[in-house]
Computed example of a mutant assay.
Amino acid sequence: MMKFLTRSFILGWLFSLLLSPLAMAAEQEAPLPDTFAAHKVVLQISDTDPFKQTLVLNVAGNLMKYYGPENVDIEVVAFGPGLRLMMKGNVNTSRIKSMMSAGVRFSACQNTLNNFAKKLGYTPEIIQGVQMVPAGAGRILQLNAAGYQILKP
Results as ranks from 00 to 15, higher is better:
N58A: 06
L55D: 11
T48E: 15
A25T: 05
A25K: 10
M1P: 06
V72Y: 10
W13S: 13
I96E: 07
P69I: 00
K40M: 06
K119I: 13
P50M: 07
L14Q: 02
A25F: 09
L120C: 01
L83V: 07
A117Y: 10
G103A: 02
I127L: 06
F106R: 03
E70A: 12
I140V: 15
L17S: 11
G138P: 11
M24F: 11
T54E: 15
A146S: 14
V72Q: 08
P50F: 06
Y148V: 03
S8H: 04
G89K: 09
V77T: 08
S20W: 15
A137E: 05
L32V: 04
L151W: 04
P153R: 02
K88L: 14
A38I: 03
V42F: 05
S94L: 11
A137L: 13
E27D: 11
I96T: 06
F51H: 13
G82R: 03
S101E: 15
A26K: 10
R105H: 05
I74D: 04
P153T: 01
K97P: 01
K40S: 03
N144M: 12
G121S: 09
Q110D: 13
L83P: 00
M24Y: 14
Q110N: 11
K97S: 10
P134D: 09
T93F: 04
V77L: 07
R95L: 13
T123I: 01
L143N: 06
V56I: 15
V56K: 10
R105D: 07
A26R: 15
F106K: 03
V59Q: 13
I127Y: 10
D34M: 10
L43D: 00
W13M: 12
N62S: 14
F106C: 06
N144Y: 05
S94N: 14
L57M: 10
S20C: 07
V104R: 09
V72N: 06
N111S: 09
I140R: 02
T6C: 04
